[in-house]
């Protein structure tokens, strides 16, 4: 079976050794957000706003701060950073079951 090759993404030229900070230092705070870990995921949590009671347990337990709140209410999942660990689905109360893990495939 022939494998269909994806076209190579345009490679962005990264800075060289002469211009980057020595020792691998990062010279500002909050840069972890730029590292998108969402593509590590095998399963993704699918959140159902109809069932959710806003108990915040998923928000408390999420190790990647990927449960998004808006105006104090759960509003969904940050799929750029969610690694699909499934903790949110596991802690969602049995009577609620507002989060379901599904295979993350196109």
């Amino acid at each position: 079976m022939a494998v269909k090759e994806k076209p190579m993404a345009q490679e962005v030229q990264k800075p060289g050794w002469k211009s980057i900070p020595i020792g691998g230092l990062i010279l500002r705070g909050g840069s972890a957000e730029e590292f998108q870990t969402g593509d590590w995921r095998t399963e993704k949590p699918v959140w159902d706003g109809e069932k959710c009671t806003n108990c915040y347990l998923c928000w408390v337990y999420c190790p990647d701060m990927s449960i998004v709140l808006e105006d104090g209410k759960v509003a969904g999942v940050d799929y750029d950073h969610c690694k699909g660990c499934g903790i949110c689905a596991a802690v969602c109360p049995p009577k609620v079951r507002a989060i379901e893990m599904v295979l993350d495939r196109e």
Partner: peptide, 14 residues
């Protein structure tokens, strides 16, 4: 940040 993960794209430069 001191000592962050430094993978294929920057370790060599350091």
């Amino acid at each position: 940040t001191v000592g962050p993960l430094d993978l294929q794209d920057f370790y060599f430069e350091h």
